[in-house]
Simulated scan of single mutants.
Amino acid sequence: MVSKRGRLDQFIARTLQISKKAVRNLLIDNKVLVNGVLAKSPDLQIDEFTHVECNGVVLRQYEKQYFMLNKPDGVVSATIDEQHPTALSLLTGIDHDMLHIAGRLDLHSTGLLLVTNDAKWSAALMAPQNKVAKQYIVTLANPIGDDYIEAFAQGMYFEYEGITTLPAQLTILSSHQAKVVLREGKYHQIKRMFGRFRNPVVALHRVSIGEIVLDNTLLPGQFRSLTKAEVDCIIQH
């Protein structure tokens, strides 16, 4: 989703179905408030979160929203799907208008999913140049060896895309389980990396994105709003 910026006069004219000349008259007559302040300039830039009032009527009052969801298995990271329940459908009691998913998970992957209506924030979260770390707990079908650690740290060449993955950190937790930290998100990257060892991924669970850690009090399918500190830690990247 892209942040929607534009001129104040264009927004009012479109919303009220009036001419730009009529909008200018409203501005001259002190009838327009932008974020609680009298607006004078017709070319003032506003976005989807700018509070706009005209003649005492609120024309726009969206607030920024940020949620973490503990995604269960079998839920798609999408807004609409005809076959499976969607992540947004789990956010009960929330207005879904403008909400989108920042950093998707596969159908059978579980764990931390972030949902927001703030396009700038999600763009910062997913921008490749920011290299925001994402941490996963991975369960494998076969035992894991120490040779996996060096292979992940060196990066792997993906012939289909013609790229070499960034160095990834792998920590062995048990014979069949590892913690993996990525700073990118190529298509099915973790499954493909373990695939080099002919070791199928049985379960993939995301526990953190940057400094945002999945709340361990959230059961699968439950969600909560992010704290200000959690929101700001992404903006700082």
Rank of each mutant, 00 (worst) to 15 (best):
N35T: 04
M68K: 11
I18M: 05
R60L: 06
G210A: 01
L140I: 07
R192N: 03
C54S: 08
K131Q: 15
L27M: 11
A123S: 13
T165N: 05
L166M: 13
Q154Y: 14
S122P: 09
A127E: 09
L204E: 02
D95R: 11
I46T: 04
E82C: 09
K64W: 09
A13Y: 05
R198A: 11
G145K: 15
K134D: 07
C233F: 10
K20Q: 07
A124S: 14
A13R: 00
E230N: 08
L59F: 04
L182A: 00
I172Q: 08
E230H: 09
T92H: 04
V76F: 00
V23S: 02
C54E: 04
R206G: 01
F67T: 06
D146W: 05
I28L: 06
I137D: 06
Q135P: 07
D146Q: 11
Q10Y: 08
S19I: 00
E150V: 14
N130H: 13
D29W: 08
R60E: 12
Q17R: 14
A203P: 10
V213M: 13
K134L: 06
R60V: 02
S175D: 15
E150D: 13
T171W: 08
N55T: 00
I28Q: 11
I144N: 00
L107S: 02
A102C: 04
S208P: 13
E82H: 10
